[in-house]
């Protein structure tokens, strides 16, 4: 199973050129989309009452959570888990992807194992990690890392294999030591793929952390969503979910977007 680099496009919203025509269409489109989503939601909240909360109730619940300490405590806990797994999966996946991309034998060894790892359902990783490590922080961290790293590895590998071999020849001919050539020639070529992988790794980490916390943690955003669900407080389920998703979206755009601009300056 290879969720390939074509997914990078899925993380980027279309950015049309700024003409007034285009801007009007964008604003109109956004209004239409939000209005229609709102209409669907309202309809559902009426037809499937009380299982789908009304938008009004949900907004009230969002306000309540935004002013409660418990929400922030859970949020920071979850953010910490995301950050740890995101970093570990990105570093391990990138290192593995580079090794696989550079060497056919390493590829032959790891590729079937990665294919199998990608076919394992995420809850299985979580449950086995809990069995092996108990219900502490380590289990969630290991499960998330195992679930995310193979995706990162696949994205980085295909970029390594598509590298400019001409630059490899150039560095060999000019006798540039291979460790230096790695940092000045190969790594910069991988930057776009590494950024894509980072975006992907981040998105996957925060989406999976909900599953991890729901199954194996007493606290965190995922646990509080699932806890509310058990008590059938659907407005809290939806409110926390929306707040969490929006925050993660902001984080991705803010941090990763800025990083991307900095690292790809030379492309102007």
């Amino acid at each position: 199973m290879t969720l390939s680099t074509s997914m990078q496009a899925t993380t980027l919203s279309p950015r049309p050129k700024a003409g007034t025509m285009d801007r009007n269409i964008r604003i109109l489109g956004a209004i239409l989309a939000v209005a229609s989503l709102f209409a669907i939601w309202t309809t559902l909240s009426i037809t499937v009452r009380p299982w789908v909360p009304t938008p009004y109730d949900t907004v009230l619940a969002m306000g309540r959570h935004l002013t409660s300490q418990g929400f922030y405590a859970n949020l920071f806990l979850t953010l910490g888990r995301i950050a740890a797994a995101f970093l570990a999966a990105s570093v391990i996946g990138a290192a593995l992807g580079i090794a696989i991309g550079m060497n056919r034998k390493v590829e032959a060894f790891f590729q079937p194992l990665l294919a199998m790892a990608l076919a394992v359902p995420d809850p299985v990783f979580i449950i086995f990690a809990i069995l092996a490590l108990g219900t502490g922080e380590a289990a969630g961290f290991v499960a998330l890392t195992l679930a995310v790293a193979p995706f990162v590895s696949n994205i980085v590998r295909s970029s390594v294999q598509a590298r400019d071999k001409g630059l490899d020849e150039m560095t060999r001919i000019y006798r540039i030591p291979s460790d230096k050539a790695f940092w000045v020639s190969l790594v910069p070529q991988l930057v776009p793929a590494l950024l894509t992988a980072a975006r992907f790794s981040f998105a996957l980490s925060w989406k999976l952390v909900v599953v991890v916390e729901a199954i194996g943690q007493p606290d965190g955003i995922g646990a509080s969503i699932f806890h509310s669900f058990r008590l059938l407080r659907m407005r809290d389920v939806v409110a926390i979910a929306i707040l969490f998703i929006l925050l993660m979206q902001l984080l991705e755009k803010g941090v990763l977007g800025r990083l991307e601009k900095r690292l790809l300056r030379w492309r102007q």
Binding site: T11, P14, G29, A30, A33, A203, K207, G222, F226, Q249
Partner: peptide
């Protein structure tokens, strides 16, 4: 273009929803 704008918001919403 308008459909693209509307639908891309739908697509993003679906993409951003954790499966759980």
């Amino acid at each position: 273009k308008l459909a693209e704008q509307v639908l891309s918001i739908y697509v993003t919403t679906a993409l951003r929803t954790p499966s759980a």
